[in-house]
Design a binder for these strands. Structure first.
Lengths: 309, 309
DNA sequence: GAAAACCATGTAGGAACGCTGAATGATTGA
DNA sequence: TCAATCATTCAGCGTTCCTACATGGTTTTC
C-alpha cells in the first residue's frame, strides 16, 4: 500500500548494503538497485552515494526515511482498524520468539488463537532476537517475543511498538556439592572467582551472562562454552563450573544440579518484550495474541513467585 | 507513493460515483471499478455497495478513508521536506484561482516564482472555486486561491490546508444619477427595493450576492442575469439596476457607473483563501508562492484602504 | 409506460511496469 | 595478486493494469 521502494530504502538503511536489503526482501540486488534509482529520479534527489563497495544514504534519504516510518505505521493502524470491520478474521498470523519464549509463551497463544479465530492460520518461528526484529520488520512475522539487550533496536524506534511483558529472574546453576549449594539465594558478586560455563560468543545468551557479570563488577572466568541448556547443565553436573540460567529454562532433568535464585537490587533478570510493527497492535487477532501472551506471562510470574517462596 | 487505489477510493467518496471519480483521475470507470474490487479482496472487507445505479461506501471504506487522508498528508510533508534537499528546484508548479484572483493575485506570484526558481515551470489555471478544489485534490494543481462559500469543503477537511489570505470588501455599483450615487457609503439594507443585476444561478458569484442580501434581510429583486463584470457594468450604466462588485474587480471603464463602498458590521466582504493539499505547504516553491500571494494581498488591502479613505 | 440516459461491472487484448539472470567494474581482504 | 564482495547495467520475460467494448440494472424523460 505504501510504495515498495520506500520499504527497499528502509531495508538498505537497516542493513547497509543493497545486497542484504534485497535478501531480506527476497529480491535480487538488481531489483533493489533499479527501483531505488528510479525513486531517486522521480523525487529529484540523490538517495544513495557509493562508499567503497557499499552505499551510503544521503541526508535526503534519511529525511525521507523518517516520513516512511510514519507512513508505514499509519498504514498498519489502518489495517488494524480495517480488521475490526470483518466478522470472522482470516488470513495468517505469524509469531516468532527466541527459544525459551517460543517454548513457554507461544504455544498457549497459538492454542488460544486457533480457538478464538479458527480461520486464521497461525504460525510460529523460533529465532534469535535479532532475527525476530528482522522478521517483524520485513513483514514475515507479525509479533515477536524477544529479550531486551543492548544490541536490540531502541524502544523508541519508530518502526516498532515494543511493550514489556515481564522480567524473568536469573538463577545460578551449581553442582550439588558446591559451596553455595545450600544457600537460599546468592549474589552474583559471590561467584566472581568461579569457573564459568557460558554460551558461545555472538549469541544473545552469551551477551546476557557477560553483561550480568559485568554489572556485578567482574568478568567471568570462562571454562566452557555451551549453547544448549542441556549441555551446559551436564557440564555443571560434572562440577566443571557454574552457569546462569533463566527461570523459565527447562531441560531433561537427567543431570543433578542445584538452582539458586540470585539476589540483588535489582534482582538480575532479563526483560521480555513483545514487538510488533508500529501501529499494528490494535488488530483483533494481534490484540488477542498479545493478551494471551500477557496472561501466560503473568501465570509464569506467579509460578516463579511460588518457586522463590 | 501511496497506493493509487486509495486515491481512487477518495475520489469515489468525493464524487459519489465511480464514473465521476474515474473522470477526475483520467481513467475509465472500468479501471476504477476493477482496482477497488481488487483492493477490497486484498483487505478482506467490502468497500462499495450497490445503491440504485450508484455505489455507496461501507463503514469500512470510511474508516479506511480517514487513514488515507493522513497518509496522503504525510506524504505531502515528505515531498515538501525532500524539496528542501535540492539546490535548484525544478519540475512544475500549478496554481489556480477564480477570475478576480487569477487576475489580481496570481500574475505577481508567477513573476516572483519565475524570478526565484527559473527552472520551475509555473502554470496557472483560471477556474471556479469548486473546480479549484478538484484540481488541487486530484493533484493537477498545487495551490488554489478561492472564496470561502457555504459549499466549499470545511476548513478542517483533512485533505486540504486552507489559510485566510484577506477579506475583500464588496461595493455597490449604481448609475451616476442614482439616488444613492452621492453617498460615501451605503448599507445593503437600503437597496432592498432596488432592481438587481446578478450573476446566473449556479455560479459562485450568484451565491455571494444572494447570501449577502439574505444576511442583510432581503431577497434581491432580480432584473437581469450577467456573468461577466463587463456585461453587468453595462447594464448598470444603462440604469437597469444595481449590482454587487468585489473591490478588486476591474472592467474596461467604458461605462459610466459609481462604485459605493458598503458599510455594516461586519462590512460585507468575501473571504479569500489559499488552499493546498494537506501537508504540502512547506515545500520551498509553494512556500514562496504563498509568500508572494500573501504580500500581493497585503498590498491590495493597503490600496483598498486608500480608496476607502 | 416505453425509451433513452446513466451507472457499475465483466471480458479480452495490449502496453507498461518490474523482476530475474548474466555481465561489468570497482573495492576490499587474504 | 587472486578471490570475494558489492553495486550497477542490460536484455528478456512475466505480471500488472489500463482501455475498449459489451452487459445488466436503475433512473429519468417524454
Amino acid at each position: 500500500m505504501i510504495d515498495q521502494r520506500l520499504q527497499m530504502l528502509r531495508m538498505v538503511a537497516h542493513h547497509g548494503t543493497v545486497t542484504a536489503a534485497a535478501e531480506a526482501l527476497r529480491y535480487t540486488p538488481s531489483a533493489v538497485s533499479q527501483q531505488l534509482k528510479q525513486l531517486s529520479r522521480e523525487l529529484g534527489v540523490v538517495l544513495l552515494e557509493p562508499e567503497g563497495r557499499q552505499v551510503r544514504l544521503t541526508s535526503a534519504a534519511r529525511s525521507l526515511l523518517r516520513h516512511a516510518d510514519t507512513l508505514f505505521a499509519e498504514w498498519e493502524r489502518a489495517r488494524a482498524e480495517l480488521a475490526r470491520h470483518v466478522d470472522e478474521p482470516s488470513g495468517a498470523l505469524t509469531m516468532c520468539g527466541f527459544s525459551t519464549a517460543a517454548a513457554a509463551l507461544l504455544p498457549p497463544a497459538v492454542a488460544g488463537l486457533r480457538d478464538r479465530f479458527p480461520r486464521v492460520r497461525v504460525e510460529t518461528i523460533e529465532a534469535e532476537p535479532s532475527e525476530c526484529y528482522e522478521l517483524v520488520f520485513a513483514g514475515r512475522a507479525d509479533l515477536a517475543v524477544v529479550l531486551l539487550t543492548p544490541t536490540t533496536p531502541s524502544l523508541s524506534d519508530p518502526r516498532f511498538d515494543q511493550r514489556r511483558l515481564f522480567d524473568e529472574p536469573l538463577d545460578l546453576l551449581v553442582h550439588p556439592e558446591h559451596r553455595l549449594a545450600e544457600h537460599a539465594t546468592v549474589s552474583l558478586a559471590e561467584t566472581a572467582e568461579e569457573a564459568w560455563i557460558v554460551a558461545r560468543p555472538g549469541t544473545t545468551y552469551h551477551q546476557l551472562t557477560m553483561a550480568s557479570c559485568a554489572s556485578a563488577g567482574f568478568t567471568p572466568n570462562v571454562a566452557h562454552y555451551a549453547n544448549e541448556w542441556e549441555t551446559g547443565t551436564a557440564l555443571v553436573a560434572h562440577g566443571f563450573g557454574v552457569a546462569l540460567v533463566s527461570r523459565l529454562a527447562r531441560w531433561s532433568g537427567q543431570h543433578s544440579v542445584v538452582r539458586i535464585p540470585l539476589r540483588g537490587d535489582p534482582i538480575p533478570a532479563r526483560r521480555i518484550l513483545a514487538v510488533t510493527r508500529a501501529g499494528a497492535g490494535t488488530s483483533p487477532t494481534l490484540d488477542h495474541a498479545l493478551g494471551m501472551i500477557g496472561a501466560t506471562a503473568e501465570e509464569l510470574i506467579g509460578a516463579m513467585a511460588d518457586q522463590r517462596g
